[in-house]
């Protein structure tokens, strides 16, 4: 499991643990002390990212789930999630 973390808006921590096999995301856990309403949006993002190629547009995938759920993320953005995944995979 590779991981990376960063401080995001409001000093919140975003930590992502990710497993990749043959260029596919196999397991991803998005963790930290940020807020997301509704909370299960994050679980949906984790599920949706699973089996995606690492060079696909992950930010777009994340943003679409946020929009679909009419979710509000406080202290973390789709861009942050995308960038921290990529950092973890470096």
């Amino acid at each position: 499991m590779k991981e990376s973390e960063r401080k995001v808006e409001g000093g919140k921590l975003l930590r992502i643990k990710v497993d990749v096999q043959e260029n596919l995301i196999k397991n991803v856990s998005i963790e930290g002390d940020f807020f997301a309403h509704p909370e299960n949006t994050i679980e949906q993002i984790e599920q949706e990212l699973t089996n995606k190629e690492i060079d696909s547009d992950l930010e777009k995938i994340v943003q679409e789930i946020i929009d679909k759920n009419n979710a509000e993320l406080v202290g973390v953005t789709a861009k942050d999630i995308n960038e921290v995944i990529l950092e973890a995979l470096k």
Binding site: E9, G10, K12, F35, H37, P38, E39, V74, G75
Partner: peptide
Amino acid sequence: RPINDIIVNGKKISGNAQTRR
């Protein structure tokens, strides 16, 4: 102190967390 803290003399005295469902 946004997002969710209250501070006294610059130090945290209260933490708060919200959800909506």
